[in-house]
Design a protein around this nucleic acid. Structure first.
Lengths: 199, 199
DNA sequence: TCCACCATGTAACTGGTTACATGATTAC
DNA sequence: GTAATCATGTAACCAGTTACATGGTGGA
């Protein structure tokens, strides 16, 4: 069995469907209207992606003809789909993911609590923080040695990147604080803590 | 004549070549080793992109057989190429550009001083700042109304996006200050100021 | 009747990914 | 002689873009 590959759009769709069964049209609206606007929305992307996911048995579409409206094909995730999602969000954080702008990492994180619980999120944040620190120090040393020979706009563009990553780095601390707070204030997850030794 | 379209990678290559004539191998190294790591580097992307640019007469490659090394095809930009670059960096800042993460905008900015001078950069920064402000207020109001029903990780991911854009917004102020300072400290650009009315 | 919206598709094209191929030069 | 590096290419594949097609429903 080849290690079935799924595009980022595919994971975005799978994640949304796993949280809440939806039709292609619903998903398009989400991409078009919410903060997930980067992912691309057009029917020519979404419907084929859904078909692929269905052919891989990661989602299942059922036609809902209840209301008087046109037939809607509502997809829900299968156990295999949820498992695949878990595998994806559990992937170790690579420096290459960080380099590419960390968008995919943030997508993973946004689904993380639903899939792995607070412990998974905390673990991810720690990995992410370490990767950011490493990448940042590389960027900063690059800027120190090469910055002077760049035109002002080039130097400023580079600095914008550094600021962005430093902001993310600070955000990880903030997010970790938020999680620690939520874990202490409502210690309902003692069972999950006990079984959650994975990785 | 159809409005010849150029991919972002194409513009990145064209911009680098315009600054300094380079071979495909040089350009690959830049993408692989410097902070421009997002752009994709592999020969299967770069060489065809260069061929396209050459067939559009935006760059010209000359084989350099001076040293004992293997023949290097060094590309330099043509007047048409520089003109196309100018058109690209002068494009008005669209909110959709901002939404997609502003990476292309930052690429444009990094070449801007070389192509349009300080005035162009300042003008761009003002547009960018306005677009960011508008997008940010939209994002923030979205977070205010929809944030509560998201899981913590989803809310934090959204907040990370907002922080990133706010950081860019602050950066525009910083960059404008840097430009104002450079303009007053060395007012050598009076000629350019006079002729530089174009948008 | 006609428009706007809901909802799903499809077909052509194209740029990027992956992986492989080649061949010259320098250093050991 | 062989490994590493310089340097350029090519071929198969595939996901996303653009644009068009379809057709049902509710309201003016």
């Amino acid at each position: 069995m080849k290690a079935l590959d799924i595009s980022v759009l595919g994971y975005a769709l799978l994640g949304l469907i796993d949280v809440k069964p939806s039709s292609g049209y619903d998903l398009r609206k989400i991409f078009a209207q919410t903060a997930m606007g980067n992912y691309s929305s057009s029917p020519g992307a979404i419907y084929p992606a859904l078909e692929r996911l269905e052919s891989q048995k990661l989602i299942r579409g059922v036609v809902e003809d209840s209301a008087g409206l046109r037939r809607r094909r509502v997809y829900h995730s299968t156990p295999a789909g949820t498992a695949q999602l878990c595998k994806w969000v559990s992937r170790p954080v690579e420096q290459s993911d960080v380099m590419r702008g960390a968008q995919e990492l943030m997508l993973r994180f946004s689904f993380m609590e639903h899939l792995l619980g607070a412990e998974g999120a905390v673990n991810f944040l720690q990995q992410f923080r370490a990767a950011l620190k490493a990448y940042l120090s590389g960027l900063e040393s690059y800027a120190r040695t090469n910055g002077k020979q760049l035109p002002l706009s080039g130097r400023l563009a580079l600095e914008s990147g550094i600021r962005g990553y430093r902001g993310m780095y600070d955000w990880t601390a903030y997010a970790l604080r938020a999680y620690r707070q939520s874990l202490t204030s409502q210690p309902k997850s003692s069972i999950e803590t006990a079984k959650g030794g994975l990785r």
